[in-house]
Computed example of a mutant assay.
Amino acid sequence: MRRLMMRMASGKGEGYIAQGLAIADFLSAMYFHELRYDPADPHWPGRDRFVLSTGHYSIAFYACLAEAGMLQVEELPTYGLNGSRLPMSTFENVPGIEVCGGSLGQGLGQSVGMALAARLDRNGARVFSELSDGELQEGSTWEAAMSATTFKLDNLVALIDCNGIQADGAVHVAIEPVAEKWRSFGWDTREVDGNDLAALTEALAASREPDGAPKAIVMRTVPGKGIPTLEKRERAHFVRVGNDEWDDLTAEMEAHYHG
Results as ranks from 00 to 15, higher is better:
207 S>G: 07
16 Y>I: 05
225 K>Y: 12
1 M>D: 09
37 Y>T: 14
188 D>I: 03
75 E>F: 08
259 G>I: 08
206 A>G: 04
178 V>I: 15
202 E>D: 15
155 N>K: 05
231 E>V: 08
220 R>M: 05
128 F>P: 02
230 L>P: 03
201 T>P: 06
129 S>D: 04
73 V>W: 12
94 V>M: 06
206 A>K: 10
168 D>W: 12
254 E>M: 08
228 P>C: 04
70 M>P: 13
131 L>F: 06
169 G>A: 11
172 H>R: 15
234 E>C: 09
140 S>R: 01
218 V>T: 11
95 P>N: 02
114 M>K: 01
250 T>K: 07
76 L>I: 02
208 R>W: 01
91 F>T: 15
105 G>Y: 00
19 Q>W: 09
51 V>S: 04
79 Y>W: 10
167 A>R: 13
238 F>E: 06
178 V>S: 03
6 M>Q: 11
139 G>K: 00
25 D>A: 11
254 E>H: 11
13 G>I: 03
168 D>F: 14
52 L>S: 04
215 K>H: 07
33 H>P: 12
164 G>V: 14
4 L>G: 09
151 F>S: 11
179 A>E: 15
249 L>G: 00
127 V>A: 08
44 W>H: 14
29 A>I: 12
62 Y>F: 09
206 A>W: 03
249 L>F: 07
190 R>L: 10
7 R>M: 10
245 E>L: 15
101 G>P: 04
160 I>W: 01
233 R>S: 02
118 A>Y: 11
218 V>I: 15
6 M>T: 02
122 R>T: 03
136 L>C: 06
163 N>W: 04
170 A>D: 15
